[in-house]
């Protein structure tokens, strides 16, 4: 047992070897001038640049980097909650009513593969630069996976379960909230995961073309104009970290609190 634990600990350290080797070589070649530092800034430069943005450069009391992160996350939260509310309600309606399903399913099938960012130019004409456009496009991108999965989950419920609940004399709302929704929770969570990923990616993309001075996407794209690759690298790393935190931290936590606790992992998700 103890040995196994130790081995596991050692094996989590494995990826550090190639990463640190890679970073060392990168740093070394940049220092001796084989790599052009104006194009591929070295790791130490990236670190110092991020440190600068985090500590030294401030607007008022707040460091610039935190402001960028804050405005991206703020947009994500609004976009994701709006689209979750709309998508889950539509998904439930589609799941429970055959006619609504037949009407909306083809439309969703057609609209789902449209990349969220393709809506951005049109929405920029309607809503202008800045938050309204970015949030709307993010919400559109997150909407479709959630609808799709909610509807699929509610529809996938076994008929016998519904029948037995009906035999026991439950009314419609109870059937929905106590039977259908718990059953569909794993699918809902899959939908949230996909929706979060698509919403976040689209949000960053739209920030690049329609941002209003703030946001991580804007920060990265703006750094290109001033030829500051170190900010781009730093931004990319921060984007990945935030997403990992959201998915592996937040969604995993929700998963543990709901479906794992209830013991209804009836799908291989």
């Amino acid at each position: 047992m103890n040995l196994e634990n130790k081995q596991q600990k050692i094996s989590t350290l494995y990826p550090l070897i190639p990463v640190s080797l890679f970073l060392l070589f990168w740093e070394f070649f940049a220092k001796i001038g084989v790599i052009n530092q104006a194009l591929l800034s070295c790791p130490s430069q990236i670190l110092s640049e991020m440190w600068n943005l985090l500590i030294a450069k401030k607007i008022g009391d707040c460091p610039i980097l935190l402001l960028h992160i804050y405005s991206s996350l703020y947009r994500l939260v609004i976009a994701f909650s709006v689209s979750t509310i709309l998508a889950v309600s539509l998904g439930i309606l589609m799941g429970t009513n055959k006619y609504i399903y037949r009407f909306f399913d083809p439309i969703i099938t057609l609209l789902m593969p449209i990349p969220g960012i393709a809506w951005a130019p049109i929405l920029m004409l309607w809503l202008g630069f800045g938050d309204p456009t970015i949030i709307t496009v993010g919400a559109i991108a997150a909407f479709f996976p959630i609808v799709h999965n909610t509807c699929y989950g509610v529809r996938s419920i076994e008929k016998e379960i519904v029948w037995s609940a009906e035999l026991l004399g439950v009314n419609k709302p109870t059937l929905l909230f106590k039977v259908c929704l718990p059953w569909a929770t794993p699918y809902l969570l899959t939908g949230f995961k996909l929706g979060l990923a698509r919403g976040w990616r689209t949000l960053i993309a739209v920030e690049m073309i329609a941002a209003s001075l703030w946001g991580l996407g804007f920060m990265i794209f703006d750094a290109r104009d001033y030829l500051r690759p170190s900010i781009i690298y730093g931004g990319i790393i921060i984007l990945a970290l935030i997403y990992l935190l959201l998915e592996k931290g937040l969604l995993r936590w929700i998963e543990k609190k709901t479906i794992e606790k209830w013991g209804i992992l009836h799908e291989k998700t």
Binding site: P15, I17, P18, W200, R201, M208, I220, R224, L239, A240
Partner: peptide, 24 residues
């Protein structure tokens, strides 16, 4: 064991975030 954590890190980067870098 060595590369799968690196790959799951790279998967979580939005593809579009690379574009400014490639533009340079």
């Amino acid at each position: 064991k060595t590369f799968s954590p690196i790959i799951s890190f790279f998967i979580s980067i939005p593809t579009i975030a690379w574009v400014p870098l490639f533009l340079i």
